[in-house]
């Protein structure tokens, strides 16, 4: 908990400072160091067209291109749970003309030993433009988990504790979600039956259609179902309750779990070895792009303001470093395999 509070304080301070910086200075210059960029920049998006990462890239790349007065091309290299894009990125020269969009799977898959790209030493972080907490949701009409019209986590726990695998959970095969669910199971003393799929339509549909009991998801991605009453949030995997969902109990405040919640984050990176002045320039450009009116509209529309979604270059680097440690600890705690030498 202390670590979480320290990070949160650091993030707020850094955000405030970066915000100050933006206000105090004018805007970032269109021309970067040594005339950079003098040709189109490519962003490798590791997830599919139309998905959350794709939308996040589109939303920030548009304003960034305007600030730099440069063309930014996006290519989607999908597959392998976001890993198929890495060879393309690693083959590109470290000149600031090839950027990588990636998420929290970068540190978690490294810890797992699935990739050799070390997110701490092999890449330079530029920005995190999406940070989202995770919640559990139930079907909006599932009376067995509802008390007085409100989703009741205690009922979910009681149902789950009736037998191993009694509770069915619609989830995705990404370490962040799997570890988070394992932490919940351990804390409440039950074992659920998790049905995993990467296709969000099927994942959401399974709970909306009443085939599975609980959905693990980031609230922004399912906000429209919540508004329509098809899904109800039942537990926030967060130290405190969210202002947007004051009736929804939180793991920390309501159930006393002292745990730094894992975050879904989406960021932009360049290869290690990219000239430092270009790295700094790109970080400033993306910070300004994040605060542009165009991007802020996107942040609000996608409910990415539940927690502060922006992390500066320094904070992004810190989050990546911390994430590696966090996943090492979580994997150890859960008895999961870890890369040799960590």
């Amino acid at each position: 908990m202390k670590k979480f509070l320290k990070n949160a304080l650091l993030a707020v301070l850094a955000s405030a400072m970066s915000g100050f910086g933006l206000i105090a200075s004018t805007s970032v210059s269109a021309a970067g160091p040594d005339g950079y960029p003098n040709r189109p920049i490519t962003v490798i998006c590791c997830y599919g067209k139309g998905g959350g990462s794709d939308q996040a890239v589109d939303a920030i790349v548009g304003p960034a291109a305007k600030i730099m007065n440069a063309k930014i091309n996006k290519i989607n290299i999908t597959g392998g749970g976001g890993l198929n894009c890495l060879p393309e990125f690693l083959q590109a020269p470290a000149d600031g003309y090839t950027l990588l969009q990636h998420i929290d799977t970068l540190p978690s898959r490294y810890v797992e030993g699935r990739i050799d790209l070390n997110p701490v030493t092999d890449v330079e972080s530029l920005v995190i433009m999406n940070v989202a907490p995770t919640m559990l949701f139930i079907n909006g009409e599932d009376e067995k988990f509802i008390t007085d019209g409100k989703a009741d986590w205690d009922k979910v726990v009681a149902y789950a504790q009736q037998g191993e695998g009694n509770l069915t959970v619609s989830n995705i095969n990404i370490p962040m979600e799997l570890v988070s669910m394992a932490v919940v199971e351990k804390h409440f003393g039950f074992k659920s039956k998790q049905v995993l799929t990467g296709k969000s339509a099927e994942r959401f549909g399974a709970v909306i259609g009443g085939q599975l009991d609980v959905l693990m998801e980031q609230p922004g991605d399912v906000s429209k179902y919540v508004e329509a009453g098809q899904l109800k949030p039942v537990l926030a995997l967060w130290p405190t309750r969210f202002d947007n969902f004051p009736d929804v109990k939180a793991l920390g405040a309501d159930y006393g779990l002292d745990w730094d919640p894992l975050l879904r984050f989406r960021g932009m990176f360049v290869k290690q070895g990219t000239p430092p002045e270009i790295v700094e320039y790109l970080a400033e450009v993306f910070a300004e792009a994040y605060n542009s009116e165009e991007h802020q509209d996107f942040v609000k529309r996608k409910s990415l303001d539940i927690v502060d979604s922006f992390r500066s270059r320094a904070d992004t680097t810190k989050i990546i470093e911390d994430s590696v440690d966090v996943y090492i600890n979580e994997f150890r705690e859960l008895g999961l395999p870890i890369r040799e030498g960590l």
Binding site: G79, G80, L83, N84, P87, I115
Partner: peptide, 9 residues
């Protein structure tokens, strides 16, 4: 190979 991690499209 990482390419085959994602399967053959």
């Amino acid at each position: 190979t990482l390419y085959l991690h994602g399967g053959v499209h």
